Computed example of a mutant assay.
Amino acid sequence: MQACVIHAAGDLRVEHRSPAPPEAGQVTVAVTLGGICGSDLHYYRHGRVGDFTVQEPMVLGHEVVGHVAALGAGCEGPAVGTSVAVHPATPCDRCPDCAAGRRNICAHTRYLGSAARTPHVQGGFAQLVTVPAAQIRTLPPELPLHRAVLAEPLSVALHAVHRAGDVKGKRVLVTGAGPIGCLVTAVLRHSGAAEIVVSDLLDAPLRIAATSGATATPRADDPEDDAWTQPFDIAVEASGAPAGLRSCVERVRRGGTVVLLGLLPPGEVPLLGNIAVTRELDLRGAFRFDSEFDEAIDLLAQGLPVDAIVTHTFPLAEARAAFDIAHDRNVASKVLLLLDGTHENAAAS
């Protein structure tokens, strides 16, 4: 099979790998589509994501959908040919965090395409991927794969909004209009937020945010915009930029809540600690997700308005071009890789 493998910063290769047959309790999926995540881009450009550094060749990708190709011995998974999505996390289910229902922060989790552990966990940008049967989700017949591939990033957005608490009737700021910020926006709209202000430094992602449910889309570098005149009840930092975090802390009301979702640069970053103290702000981290994956699939099947977030699809053979354009936020939002070979000779769209 062919797979998209990162070797070091800037060293991305499409290379041959030999798939292993599924063992007992495992399912092999023939991957059709994979979404390029911000973490994949960080591995490609910098060889690291936050504090996780590439130490050995690693198949990237954790946003994947496809069809069941094979079942391991005794496995009661869906039948061969069934359309499925892959939940990318395998928590230990033994630690105190798992026992407390917070499996997303399990320190022993294995996550597809992650360098958090060594040996690294190989990812989903491969034509065949084998995972425990518990990670397989059968897709509703009305949900096409090109929408289902958003289930993983939508789960991240759902978890962040859950961490924010009750958003109904609230005025909410989202900093960063990348794919995650736009998905957060769609979830906020679905959850009844009264106002959703999404800020970014670029116009193109702000236009996508508007289609996802934003009520206002001010440029982050335009302090005179009317959207800034009133404080926010809740702010979600989805850019991973220190300036975005500063904006959230400064603009949320006294006693308000700031959800830190975007991964900030490694090491220490400035924090307006005195404002957080004197205004008694709640600062809440949001990391990955757990059961939200099933909720995300249901929302996508119901028609949550997120189609504009997918802007490009490339065949696996053109993975480097896909990663390069995914980095250009002036033209791209969510970029997909087509891995099943059906349209290998098709031009990138």
Rank of each mutant, 00 (worst) to 15 (best):
S199R: 04
H312C: 10
A115C: 12
A204D: 13
S83N: 13
L261F: 08
V131G: 01
L154S: 02
I105A: 06
Y44E: 03
A30Q: 14
V86R: 04
D203V: 13
A151F: 08
R219A: 10
T90I: 15
S199V: 00
A346N: 12
D225S: 07
I234D: 01
G25S: 06
R207H: 13
P315R: 12
P265W: 08
E318W: 10
S18G: 13
D203E: 15
V174N: 01
V174C: 02
G10Y: 09
E56H: 10
C92A: 07
V258P: 00
S191C: 10
E237K: 06
T211M: 03
C75I: 05
L206C: 04
A24V: 11
G341A: 04
P242R: 01
G244A: 01
D166Y: 04
G181W: 01
I136F: 08
S18E: 15
V27D: 00
A24F: 09
S212N: 11
E292T: 12
A214P: 05
G273H: 11
A346I: 05
L71Q: 07
G38D: 03
S114H: 11
R189Y: 01
E268T: 14
A116P: 08
T211Q: 13
A148W: 01
D203W: 10
A209G: 00
V49W: 13
G240E: 02
D225W: 02
I325G: 03
A157Y: 02
L41P: 10
Y43I: 02
P144I: 06
D166G: 02
P305F: 13
P223H: 07
F293C: 08
C4N: 09
V187I: 08
P218M: 07
V269D: 10
S83I: 05
L337C: 04
T28I: 06
A332S: 14
A3R: 09
S199N: 03
A276T: 02
L60P: 04
A134T: 15
G113N: 09
P153V: 06
A301E: 05
E318A: 15
D203N: 12
R137W: 12
I196L: 08
L41F: 11
A116W: 14
R102S: 07
F52K: 14
V187Q: 05
E195G: 01
Y111G: 07
A134K: 14
T130I: 08
K168S: 10
H7V: 10
V14I: 14
R48Q: 14
A30I: 11
C182L: 09
V172W: 00
T313Q: 11
A157H: 01
S291C: 13
L145G: 01
L154T: 05
P218F: 04
L338I: 04
P265D: 12
R288H: 15
I180R: 01
V65F: 09
P22I: 04
V80E: 14
H16I: 14
A70R: 14
A243M: 11
I6Y: 06
L33R: 07
E23F: 12
V252T: 12
R110N: 13
